[in-house]
C-alpha cells in the first residue's frame, strides 16, 4: 500500500475531524494511506506576506524542513495548510530571498536537504491514483446528484505559486464528481471568497459573502456544495440564516461512493443534515 507523509494541521483533529477521517478511509479503499508526519507544528493558517516578516513564516518553513527528512512528497488536506505550506516553501526556495532563507534555516537548525513537494490530497487522486482507478472502485455511483464544487481562495490563488488548477475555473473536484457518477454543476462562485477569517470579528460581512456563494450554487441547480476547507465549510454551513443547501467535504461523498458506511463519514456534523437529501436521491 502506498504511504504518504501527511500534514493534518490544527483543525483536522478537532473541528474538522470528519474531513480527516473520511479522507483516510476513502484513501484506504483506493490502496493508499496517510501517515502523519512527526513533530509538525501549526502552519499559521494564513500566509504572512510582509517582506520582512520572517518570523511569521517560520512555523510553516519548519514543517517543510521536517518533511524533507521523510520523503519527496508531503500531502495536505486542509486548503489553508496547502496554501500556506506551498507558499512558504516557494519563498524559501526563491534565490531572491537568500537572506531570509539563510536566517530562517539557521534559526530552525535542522537539515533541509531534499526536495519535497507539497501536494493536496486531490493531487494524489488526480495524478497518482487517476480517475479511471477511482471510477473502478466506485461501489455506489452517485447518480442523479448535482454537486457544486466550491474551491474558494486558498486552493487556487496565487496561481503562479500554487499551480494547482485554473484560478478562475478550476476543474479537479468537478473531475472527481464525474468519476463518482455525479453531475458537476457549473456555477459562478466556484472561487469566490466565503469571507474567511472575517468571521472572527466581522460575522456580518462573512455571512453576506457566504450567502452569495450558496445562493448562486442553488440557482445553478446544485443539490449540495462540496469543499476541502474547514473554514469554507463552517462559514457556508453555519453562518447562513436562509438557504438550506447541504455543504459537505468532498471526502465524505468520495467515501459514500466507494461504499463506506454512511455512519463512518461524519454526516451528522453538518448544520444542514445532508442525509435527507441523499436518501431522497436513493443514495442512503
Amino acid at each position: 500500500m502506498a504511504s504518504y507523509a501527511y500534514y493534518p494541521g490544527c483543525t483536522l483533529y478537532t473541528k474538522a475531524r470528519e474531513l480527516d477521517l473520511s479522507a483516510r478511509k476513502a484513501l484506504a479503499v483506493l490502496g493508499a494511506e496517510l501517515e502523519e508526519m512527526p513533530a509538525w507544528v501549526c502552519c499559521g493558517a494564513i500566509y504572512n506576506t510582509a517582506d520582512d516578516d520572517f518570523a511569521g513564516r517560520i512555523g510553516a518553513t519548519r514543517n517543510i524542513v521536517r518533511a524533507s527528512a521523510l520523503g519527496d512528497t508531503l500531502v495536505t488536506l486542509c486548503a489553508a495548510c496547502y496554501n500556506v505550506l506551498k507558499r512558504a516553501k516557494a519563498r524559501i526556495d526563491d534565490p531572491a530571498n537568500a537572506v531570509e532563507r539563510e536566517r530562517v534555516l539557521n534559526f530552525i537548525d535542522e537539515p533541509y536537504e531534499r526536495e519535497v513537494r507539497v501536494v493536496h490530497y486531490l493531487d494524489v487522486l488526480r495524478r497518482d491514483i487517476g480517475w479511471d482507478a477511482v471510477k473502478a472502485k466506485v461501489a455506489k455511483p452517485l447518480a442523479g446528484l448535482k454537486l457544486a464544487s466550491y474551491y474558494g481562495c486558498l486552493m487556487v490563488r496565487p496561481a503562479a505559486v500554487l499551480d494547482f488548477d485554473d484560478p478562475e475555473d478550476p476543474q479537479v473536484m468537478d473531475e472527481l464528481v464525474r468519476a463518482l457518477g455525479a453531475e458537476p454543476v457549473r456555477f459562478d462562485f466556484k472561487t469566490e471568497c466565503c469571507g474567511g477569517y472575517l468571521v472572527v470579528n466581522r460575522k456580518d460581512v462573512a455571512r453576506e459573502s457566504s450567502a452569495r456563494v450558496l445562493e448562486n450554487a442553488r440557482a445553478w441547480g446544485a443539490d449540495a456544495v462540496i469543499t476541502t476547507c474547514p473554514l469554507c465549510q463552517y462559514n457556508l454551513d453555519r453562518l447562513r440564516d436562509r438557504d438550506g443547501l447541504p455543504v459537505l467535504y468532498f471526502t465524505q461523498l468520495l467515501g459514500l461512493a466507494l461504499g463506506l458506511e454512511p455512519d463512518e463519514l461524519g454526516f451528522d456534523n453538518c448544520a444542514v443534515d445532508p442525509r435527507p437529501m441523499l436518501a431522497e436521491k436513493g443514495l442512503l
Binding site: 490544527c10 483543525t11 473541528k15 493558517a45 494564513i46 468571521v199 463552517y234
Partner: peptide, 15 residues
C-alpha cells in the same frame, strides 16, 4: 467553541 481554530489563527495574525 464553534468557529474552526484556523479562523482564529488567521484573524489574529492579520489583525
Amino acid at each position: 467553541e464553534e468557529i474552526p481554530q484556523q479562523a482564529f489563527m488567521a484573524s489574529f495574525r492579520k489583525f
